[in-house]
Design a binder for these strands. Structure first.
Lengths: 230, 230
DNA sequence: ACATTGGGTCAACCCTGTTGACGTAAGGCG
DNA sequence: CGCCTTACGTCAACAGGGTTGACCCAATGT
């Protein structure tokens, strides 16, 4: 059966329960499933049940689970970047890209946690890469450097966003436990054995907060310092 | 059956094939399995087969897969930071910390991918934080800044390492698909619609490689630029 | 030597992704 | 209008996964 997935579908007919399937509907239902019942709620069988169709009908739309995950990831990217237009200042524009991507991930933390590390090779991702590399080219970087630095930038943004999303995807209990670790464990340390931690102790409770913006700003500072033109 | 896991075991007896089980032996065998036959080789059943025991015997030692993974992760952290002593140059030392953490993760990608986003609050982690913040204090940063910047640094390192590990943890097929995405999809784009991508096209196949070191170097450049003292 | 019980084994359950065969109805075409 | 093709929804089946409860033997403390 080789699971060919044609792009135009003319012959679709309602499922047993009357639903008209479509790639968009499947992706949206998957996002809803994950958002409501956690990442482990996403399985071909459960998705089929939620859609009111036979699980294997999904193979007419996606080559397999992996293909579906990539579609979900691309959807998140697309939603996050919708309506974004780069401005005159490339540093400001890259910063907004970073914040948008992170916001998109945080909007679907559980889906992001499973899709964040993939290369979708789909429409929304291609558009985002085009935009980002274009910004670095406009900053005067050589093509090879622009590609390399964009990769470092976007990987950092995506990795950080994935970490934040993964944290949000944790059960409330474990999240609180992480906060408590910084508040309790790190407050009761032997000053002799841990002089540095003792010196910065008042700042430690904030360690549970995200460092996303600080990291992005540091990275953009370094990029600006390396840029041929301002 | 509640899978109680006692700490002292006095009554163990050899398995059917003559092996004496132990927590250490199980963790080591799991790491060996992953190293030899790829990340997807780790399953309770396969691990049992590799140990020459019934798969369910492992439940006498770990509450479940998750518990086993945490035990593995603990071992990885300890191994990665073993013997590390910070040197005189704080930039060089932070860089080595970053590389060590990443190397530890990459050595056991699947375990790292499953446990990367958790806060252990244990001895090794505390020691690492102490070392890192101490390095930033020695660079002349104020305590509050040192804590904040260390967090940005280590979060970036851990996130990136987790991303790289997650990629290695993918089944071979999906990894190759990611490579192909950069080699194929991004090579056949409309030059009018995607001018930036067209301009950097020769550099695109390298996009599948890790940007870890580039990102760390950029971050360290920014930190050095902000440091009160050289 | 005996009673206790830790721990290795086995069978079973329900989950998962994926496949190949099957049939029905939708759409193109005469 | 009605036939023919075939897209696509359905079904049954397979291999593999984690996990559980019952079983029972032997290692240990007395």
């Amino acid at each position: 059966m080789s699971t060919r997935v044609p792009q135009e579908r003319r012959r679709r007919r309602p499922t047993r329960s009357g639903v008209l399937l479509s790639e968009d509907l499947i992706v949206e239902t998957a996002l809803r499933l994950i958002g409501e019942h956690g990442p482990e709620a996403l399985s071909v069988r459960r998705l089929g049940a939620a859609l009111g169709c036979d699980p294997t009908a999904l193979y007419r739309y996606f080559h397999g689970t992996d293909d579906l995950v990539l579609a979900i990831a691309d959807r998140i990217i697309g939603d996050a970047m919708a309506g974004f237009v780069p401005g005159a200042d490339w540093v400001v524009s890259l910063r907004e890209m970073a914040l948008r991507v992170r916001a998109g991930y945080l909007a679907h933390p559980r889906a992001a946690a499973m899709a964040a590390h993939r290369v979708t090779g789909r429409k929304s991702e291609i558009q985002a890469v085009e935009t980002g590399i274009g910004l670095l080219l406009s900053a005067g970087f050589e093509p090879a450097a622009a590609a390399r630095l964009y990769l470092a930038f976007i990987d950092t943004v995506l990795s950080h966003a994935a970490t934040d999303a993964a944290f949000l995807a944790l059960p409330l209990q474990q999240r609180q436990a992480d906060h408590r670790a910084w508040s309790n464990v790190y407050q009761d340390l032997d000053p002799v054995a841990y002089p540095a931690l003792t010196a910065v102790r008042p700042a430690l409770p904030g360690m549970a907060d995200s460092s996303f913006e600080e990291a992005v700003d540091l990275l953009l500072e370094a990029l600006a310092a390396r840029a041929p033109t301002r």
